[in-house]
Design a binder for these strands. Structure first.
Lengths: 215, 215
DNA sequence: TGCACTCAATCAATCGTTTGATTAATTTTG
DNA sequence: CAAAATTAATCAAACGATTGATTGAGTGCA
């Protein structure tokens, strides 16, 4: 039946996403993916044409779900600049667990030196998030809520970069934290609230500081 | 002569570093490296044991000088905790931006979770640097210089993560900053001092804050 | 029968590594 | 000192394994 075919393709994409995320494009083999997915190896080429076609299919599926997710970021006029930013941070940290293996894929692709159509597409989509936060920061500086000499681009790099570091280098962050950051229970119950608290305190100390912050 | 042998090994390491950085560990082949370096393929195994051994040799050469630098800072009794940390940040920013293509490689390999042998060794080497900074932070907390409720592991994640984000996602950070972060002149003359200033101000605001920082 | 799907078997290419022979350099020995 | 013995360095060739991809025979359903 048609639905079964779609389910099977989707299942292959699920497995491929995981394996590509763990091992990279070169490190992942088509045999491994087909074996893990429980399908014949020839199915990958039959469905997706090639290994690269499979990789692109994984990406496009994720990106389309990303785009709809981004649409419900609204601008609440009743909130202060800081409350908006705090809510952004909370929401952002909240989402790191759901897509964390895909996040690794995205960052690895973006770090490749060659400029591809794919990385341009990813950049464009991620910039929506970035610009959302940038707008909040700029507004807050304009209305005097935030430190006027704030380095906005670097502050954004800190928010995204800190999270990326924890997720993308799990070996190191696990050693630092004393727990396996890949353990979902620990992630949900301990690390998530901890990162939220830390990130807001860090950013607030930098942005909303009324003593001498110039040296 | 002995010096020639060292020069040849060094030349191989130079070439290997470039190719590994461009293509990743899996993407780079031993044939490509030996061909580019103008040596017989067997020499790689003769000198470095294996492809992985070659990679680790490249890696250790890169990081060893930074490691001793960090240790010298940490062991300097004449500096305050904050001055030590500030110097670490300065040196770190100074260093990574020069070697940014290799840094990207390291992060790519680390983000692949399953390759046990290689990533474990990289982790082990990088942890020396992490622990050096952790020691400075812990000392500063103990002697009252730093905020007592500092989340040390996450603060470290911020230092490393912010820098990683800037250089690993050059497309995005270039758009944010309004300049191409891959332009070496801009990197050297503008971005580097800017990141140093920002990073120290950010960390200081978080660590050395005497007003209410608990909410 | 016709069509979409599935499979084991196999393809050529490339991978990292090993081998055995050869040359260059060094040390030991008479 | 010179010949001999030993070690180190280098090379072309080939190793077995694995890679992504293809084949052609078969499957079951419409």
């Amino acid at each position: 039946m048609d639905k079964d075919k779609i389910d099977k393709k989707d299942h292959i994409l699920d497995v491929a996403e995981k394996i590509f995320s763990d091992l990279g494009f070169d490190g992942a083999s088509t045999r491994m993916i087909s074996g893990e997915a429980g399908v014949n190896m020839a199915m990958l080429n039959y469905y997706f044409g090639s290994k690269e076609g499979l990789f692109l299919a994984v990406f496009e599926r994720k990106i389309s779900s990303f785009q709809t997710l981004l649409q419900n970021i609204g601008n609440d006029e009743s909130m202060s600049s800081w409350d908006k930013l705090a809510k952004c941070i909370d929401n952002y940290v909240e989402r790191i667990i759901v897509n964390n293996c895909f996040q690794k894929l995205i960052n690895r692709e973006l770090s490749m030196s060659k400029r591809s159509e794919l990385s341009d597409k990813i950049t464009q989509i991620l910039m929506v998030n970035v610009l959302e936060i940038k707008k909040i920061l700029d507004d807050g500086i304009k209305n005097g809520t935030f430190f006027k000499d704030t380095d906005t681009p670097l502050a954004i790099a800190t928010i995204f970069g800190t999270k990326n570091y924890i997720i993308n280098t799990p070996n190191i962050s696990s050693l630092m934290l004393g727990h396996d950051v890949r353990d979902e229970k620990y992630l949900e119950e301990q690390l998530k609230p901890r990162v939220k608290t830390y990130m807001k305190r860090l950013i607030k100390a930098y942005l909303v500081n009324d003593n001498d912050n110039t040296k």
